[in-house]
Design a protein around this nucleic acid. Sequence first.
RNA 1: GGCUCCAUAGUCUAGUGGCCUAGGACGUUGGCCUCUCACGCCGAUAACAUGGGUUCGAGUCCCAUUGGAGUCACCA
Length: 477
Amino acid sequence: MTQLRTRFAPSPTGYLHIGGLRTALYSYLYAKKNNGKFILRIEDTDQGRYVEGAVDIIYRTLHETGLNYDEGPDVGGDYGPYIQSQRTNEYMKYAEQLVESGHAYYCFCSEERLESLPAVNGARRYDKHCLHLSKEEVAMRLERGDKFVIRQNMPTSGSTTYHDAVYGDITIENSELEDQILIKSDGMPTYNFANVIDDHLMGINCVMRGIEYLSSTPKYNLLYDAFGWERPMYIHMPPIMKDAQHKLSKRNGDASYEDLIAKGFLKEAIINYIALLGWSPKDDTEKMSFDELLAKFDISGINKSPSIFDPLKLAWLNSLYIKEMTPEAFAEYATPWLNGCYLKNFDKTLVCKLIQSRIETFAEIEEKLRFLADFGAFDNSLYDNQKQKTNADVAKEILPSVKEKFKNVEQWDNEHLYAALVELAQEKGIKNGKVLWPARIALTGLAATPGGASEIAELLGKEETLRRLEQSIANLN
RNA sequence: GGCUCCAUAGUCUAGUGGCCUAGGACGUUGGCCUCUCACGCCGAUAACAUGGGUUCGAGUCCCAUUGGAGUCACCA
C-alpha cells in the first residue's frame, strides 16, 4: 500500500480565503487520518497575478492554525522545488513528449483568428486548425521563431468517466472537451498542465479541491492516461457561499482568515466552524477541538451542496471558546482591544472578568466599555423602571444616601459595596432593586451595562464613583 | 445557451425504504435565574422545492419540472 499524499495548492494572489482554508483543513485531516503526508505547493504560473506577501500569508496562516505541512517551500522535502515557477524547465519536456505521441500539438493561431471562431452554444471553441499542420511546416515555423502554444489534442468522440469520492461517478462527453492550452506563448505551463505534471512528480495520489474543477478533471485524466500514469483519487468539495447566489469572495473583506481574526474571532472557532461548513461528524457534536476534529473527520461526511457562511453561528462558537479561556489568557488576548483611553485608569483584570461572558467577539469590547470613558448628561427617564418601581423622584431621594454609604466603605470591592447597598435598602425598608437600579443608572447613564451597580462602582474606583454620583444628583435638580 | 453537479426549517446539518407524527445546532421567541445586561437552565417556533412513478410502505429509489451552483480563458 502506497502512502497517501494530499496537497494544498493555492495561488499567491492575495488573501487565503475561507474556502481555501477549508480545503487545506480537509486535506490535512484526511492525510493525517491515513498516516499520509500533507504537502503545500505554490501555484504561481501566472506571473501577472503575483501579489507580494501573499505567500507569507499562506505560510503563516497554515502554521498558526496547526495545518503543518510535511513538505513545502519553506520546510523542504524530497520532491522540491515546491514553487511552480521554479520548476519550469520540466513542463516543456513533458509537453514535447505529448506532441511526439500525438496527444498534443503546436498551435500558431493568432489572437484575431481565435476571436473570429464561431461561437457554439454560447461559447467559442478552438477548431483544431493547427493539428493538421504538416510536420515540416511546424518545424519551419518553430525555427523561424513564430509565437506558439502547445494544445492538448482531445478525442472527438467517446466519453470519459472518473470516480469522485464525494460526487460519485462523473461522465463527460469527450466532444465537450476543448483542446486546452498546455504551454502558453511565454513558455510557461498553464495551471491545467502544471497541476497534473506536478501532482504526478510529487507523488500526489489524492487530490482535494473545490468543485470548480469537477468538470475539467476529465481533461486532466486524459493527460494522466496519455503519459501512462496512474490517476489520483479525487475529492471535490462544494463551495462556501455568502448567500444563495454569491460565492464568498475575497473582495467582501469578510472572507479571509486574517479579516476574521481582525474582527475578533479566535482561530479555534474559525477552524471549528469551517470544518462544519460542508462536513458533519454524523453525531450531534458541534464544538470540537483540533484533536477531536482529527479523530472524527471522515470524507463520507462531506456534503454535496453549497453552504452559506453564517457569521452568527461563527460568533456563537467563538463565544464558547472565549468562555473557556482562563482569565489570564483572556486578558492577554483582549489587550489589543482594550487599548482605548478608558483603560488607563481602570483595573484590567476586573474589566476582563466583567466582559468575558458578555462578548461573542473581541471587537465588541470597545462598545461594551465605552461608558468608562464617556460619562455625561443623560436622560433622567432612565431611572424609570416598572419592575423595580423606580423613577427620577426615587433616585433623587436614594442617591444622596448611596453616596454617603459609599463614602464610608472602607474596603472598596464588590462584596463590600454590594453589602453597603443592600444595607441601605434594609434601613429604608425597601427592596434591593429600588436602590440598585438608580445607583447603576447614576454611575453609567446606561440601561444595560456589563455588571451591576456594585461591580461598576468597584471598577470605577471610589473617587470616580463619588464624582459620578454627585454629577448625577446635580443632574436631577 | 451547452455540459456537469446540487436540492430537509431563515442558516449549518442528521437521515442510505419501515426505528421519521423528520433528530441536533445557530437564529428568533416565551419563561426561570438575576444588582441591569449577559451567562446558565427549561420550553416554543419553523423544513423533506413541485409533479409523476416504483413499492405493502418514500425525506430516502427512478423520471420530469422548477430553482440554484460550477464550467465552457495563453486565470488558477
